[in-house]
Computed example of a mutant assay.
Amino acid sequence: MLSNTCKYALRALIYLGKFSTDDKRIGIKKISEDLGLSSPFLGKILQNMVKQKLLVSTKGPNGGFSLAKKSSEISLWEIVTKVDGEEFFTNCLISLEPCKSHDPSKPLCPVHAQYEVLRGQIRSFYKETNLELISKDIDKYEDLVKL
Rank of each mutant, 00 (worst) to 15 (best):
G64A: 04
S66Q: 08
S66I: 06
S66E: 10
L67N: 02
A68F: 06
A68T: 10
A68N: 15
K69D: 08
K69Q: 14
K70S: 14
K70C: 07
K70A: 12
S71Y: 01
S71W: 01
S72N: 14
S72A: 14
S72Y: 07
S72T: 09
E73C: 03
E73A: 12
W77H: 15
W77G: 01
E78Q: 13
I79A: 03
I79W: 02
I79N: 01
I79D: 02
V80Y: 05
T81G: 07
V83G: 01
V83M: 13
D84K: 02
D84H: 02
G85H: 06
E86D: 13
E87K: 13
E87Q: 11
E87P: 00
E87D: 15
E87C: 06
F88K: 07
F89I: 07
F89T: 02
F89E: 00
N91K: 15
N91A: 14
N91V: 01
N91S: 15
C92S: 14
L93Y: 13
L93E: 13
L93C: 11
L93N: 14
L93H: 15
I94T: 02
I94Y: 08
I94D: 07
S95W: 09
L96P: 00
L96C: 08
K100Q: 08
S101D: 15
H102M: 08
H102A: 12
D103P: 02
D103H: 08
P104Y: 13
P104L: 11
P104I: 11
P104K: 13
S105H: 04
S105M: 10
K106G: 02
K106W: 03
